[in-house]
């Protein structure tokens, strides 16, 4: 069964369809959470909360074809809220190793720079580069013209560049 049909069923209250959809995107969701929150435990908590929010909100979906963007955005919003509630993002070796990745400086800088961005920029960069979503899809879910999304995207990239330059290799870890 196609995703759109599943979404339609889920909107009508079919729990199986809903769970199937979450299954389809669980890895995307998890990675998004991990990229924002950088802890497995918190990412799993995020999955739980996003499943909850998605279930409660699914009836508000107007266009079945943008389900994925809609779902990822719930995750991004949740992560942004979590980040806001933290005073400072503290990175340590334990966290990094828990991700199972050894990071080089550039990647670490990039992640720090991302976390230093405003919410909208972070959201748009995540949607575009992390989930390879099309500008049109993003525009439709955000209910704004494609041109606006492009402007935001440019602003976000510019802000990112500034952040990276600001750091200039001077990484405080």
């Amino acid at each position: 069964m196609g995703t759109e049909q599943l979404v339609k069923k889920a909107i009508k209250g079919n729990d199986d369809a809903f769970l199937q959809l979450i299954q389809t995107y669980k890895v995307d969701l998890y990675k998004t959470a991990l990229s924002f929150l950088r802890s497995e435990e918190e990412a799993l908590e995020a999955i739980q909360e996003v499943t909850y929010r998605a279930y409660k909100g699914i009836r508000k979906i107007k266009e079945a074809s943008y389900f994925k963007t809609w779902l990822i955005r719930i995750m991004i919003n949740y992560c942004n809220d979590q980040l806001k509630s933290r005073k400072r993002v503290i990175l340590n070796d334990e966290m990094l190793s828990s991700l199972g990745v050894s990071e080089n400086h550039t990647e670490m800088e990039l992640k720090d720079a991302m976390l230093g961005l405003d919410e909208k920029s972070r959201e748009i960069l995540t949607l575009k580069y992390f989930h390879d979503l099309k500008i049109k899809d993003i525009a439709d879910t955000m209910q704004c013209p494609e041109g606006t999304v492009k402007t935001w995207l440019n602003k976000a990239l510019k802000a990112l560049r500034e952040k990276l330059e600001e750091k200039g290799g001077n990484v405080n870890v």
């Binding site: 729990d15 809903f18 769970l19 979450i22 299954q23 669980k26 890895v27 998890y30 990675k31 991990l34 990229s35 497995e40 799993l44 908590e45 999955i47 739980q48 909360e49 996003v50 499943t51 909850y52 279930y55 991700l99 199972g100 990745v101 990071e103 990647e107 990039l110 992640k111 580069y129 992390f130």
Partner: peptide, 25 residues
């Protein structure tokens, strides 16, 4: 794009994710 690729290699416990989904549901 590289950052994304990096996350492609992150080990994932699907069981833990499924448990989290079930709890939320």
């Amino acid at each position: 794009t590289n950052l994304k690729k990096e996350f492609d290699n992150v080990p994932i416990s699907l069981d833990s994710i499924d448990n989290a989904i079930l709890t939320g549901f």
